[in-house]
Simulated assay, not measured.
Amino acid sequence: MFRWAIIFLILIVISAVLAFTTLVTVAVGLAKFFFFVFIALFFLALAGGFYGARKLTKKK
């Protein structure tokens, strides 16, 4: 168990070193981009679901 703790400590130190460099600005930019892409896809799927449900339940 101590071995896993040391491995995670090393990973945390490496990620902290990388996080406090200029990679943060790239990561933030990508996160914002993907956030808005997935929000748009969510609303498209929501609208498609409403349209499809209305089409299926419409009485003739």
Results as ranks from 00 to 15, higher is better:
L41A: 10
I39R: 07
I7M: 01
L9F: 14
L41I: 02
F33S: 03
A19Y: 12
A27I: 12
V17C: 00
W4P: 01
L9H: 02
F36Q: 01
K59P: 04
T21A: 10
K32N: 12
L30Y: 11
F42I: 00
A16E: 08
F50Y: 07
T21S: 12
I10P: 05
L41Y: 03
S15N: 10
W4S: 05
F8E: 01
I10G: 01
A31C: 13
G49T: 10
A19N: 11
L11F: 15
T22E: 04
F42A: 00
A40M: 12
I7H: 05
L56M: 11
Y51M: 08
L56F: 09
F20A: 05
K60S: 15
F34D: 02
V26Y: 05
T25V: 12
L46C: 06
K58V: 07
A47F: 07
A47W: 04
L9K: 06
V28Q: 00
M1N: 09
G29P: 00
G49E: 11
V24T: 07
L9P: 01
V37G: 06
W4G: 07
L9M: 10
I39F: 10
I14F: 15
K58H: 13
V13G: 03
F20I: 02
I39V: 15
A5K: 05
A40L: 15
R54G: 10
I39S: 11
G29V: 06
M1G: 05
V17A: 05
F43M: 05
L44I: 13
I14T: 10
F35V: 12
R3Y: 10
K60A: 15
F2H: 04
V37I: 15
A5I: 14
I6V: 13
L23Y: 04
W4L: 10
L18E: 03
I6F: 11
M1E: 02
L46E: 02
F34T: 12
V37D: 07
R3W: 02
F38S: 07
K32C: 09
K58N: 08
G48D: 03
F33I: 09
I6C: 13
V28N: 00
R3D: 09
Y51E: 04
A47S: 12
I10T: 03
L56T: 04
K55I: 08
G29N: 14
L41P: 02
I12P: 00
L46M: 14
V28K: 00
F33E: 11
A16W: 11
L56V: 09
L18M: 10
M1F: 10
